[in-house]
Design a binder for these strands. Structure first.
Lengths: 199, 199
DNA sequence: TGAGTTAACCTAACACTGTTCGGTTAGTCG
DNA sequence: CGACTAACCGAACAGTGTTAGGTTAACTCA
């Protein structure tokens, strides 16, 4: 059918359904044809609203990262770093399946850079040199992205019994989904606290 | 041509050529047909030596991670952590293009787990509780993998002039390849030092 | 009101991808 | 010498992202 009375597609709708598919089926579970199908449309029609799949993923990533809050440096820079990192982690852990895409970088996404720039500026204002500020901001990103991708929750989904005999030191309990989630959060908090304290 | 006098293929040769392609053309630059071509062979022939592409990538990842050294805890645990992290980073930064694949994790790769297990055991021996040891090991991995994937070198490869006006705080010099490499290393070292000191 | 343009969809196709099936033959073992 | 296996190849399948060209509804403007 040609041109419907009310448009079926819009960039926003495409992005939101695409993100839903990613959340549900993983990053590899998203194909343009499947996306089109769930939108009640043929695959080719998407390209009137989206330049390319990669661009679509980038847009989705940006919209996720735009939820990150870097205000909080009014108090002091340590607290600001911690808030910023928590906000980042919250954004990423809401949509963990998109993290592998972020790994393809460029970290040169607009939103990321804007936030990095603000972070950097706040650190400089707090008395760090430009170079130090850059490295501290980078270190914070290490913890954020590292925790997003090497998480216990998404890591070992198979049967705990497989591990317990081969790796005597590792605790089987880590592998239960509930415990893993909590452990992820606590590990992140510990790493963050240690990092900020150690500066 | 059928069965040649001396076999053209072996798992080792396949892995090494595949890794060379990944290093040269990126993770997406590796296809079974291209790999076969560079081995002087048809794509189907690979499947006599390799179960699947994913398995091949896993094997490559393992062989890279098996270069990681977790001995060094004889001295003290802080030094051990630092050495371990450096060794990890060295392994990953030699083949940065495979990092996106690792992001798809399961982190449940054999080699990773073995090393994590040893790390964990050493921390427990040093007096940390099992839970603390797990979280510390996780934190170390955050920094290692975070630095591997959100690096300045691989991040912004485009023209520095694009950035300098839009992001006033960021220093243009960060974007020059040479400086970026050095900055990556220093950022990693700073994050690592701060983390270990803060424990 | 009616003509022309544009916007939004479609079908069909292209060049890829990973993977499998069935062949063909060189080497090896009894 | 015969049977068998190991190692390759050609062709195909289902799936991928993406593009070209067509069809028609909705909008614009005289």
């Amino acid at each position: 059918m040609p041109r419907p009375s009310t448009p079926l597609l819009s960039p926003d709708r495409i992005r939101s359904v695409a993100l839903a598919i990613i959340d549900r089926d993983g990053l590899d579970g998203l194909s343009m044809r499947k996306l089109a199908a769930e939108l009640g449309v043929q695959a080719a029609s998407l390209y009137g609203h989206v330049r390319t799949k990669d661009q679509l993923l980038n847009d989705i990533a940006q919209s996720i990262l735009s939820a990150v809050d870097v205000s909080g440096f009014s108090v002091d820079w340590r607290e600001g770093l911690i808030r910023c990192a928590r906000s980042y982690r919250a954004a990423l852990s809401t949509h963990p399946n998109i993290v592998p895409f972020l790994a393809y970088g460029p970290a040169g996404r607009e939103e990321s850079l804007q936030r990095l720039d603000l972070l950097h500026g706040a650190l400089v204002d707090a008395g760090w040199s430009r170079r130090e500020a850059t490295m501290i901001a980078a270190g914070l990103m290490y913890i954020v992205f590292g925790s997003a991708l090497s998480s216990f929750s998404s890591g070992f989904s198979s049967d705990p019994a497989d591990y317990v005999d081969r790796y005597p030191h590792l605790d089987r309990a880590h592998l239960l989904p509930g415990v893993a989630r909590e452990l992820d959060r606590d590990s992140f908090e510990l790493a963050l606290a240690a990092f900020v304290r150690g500066l």
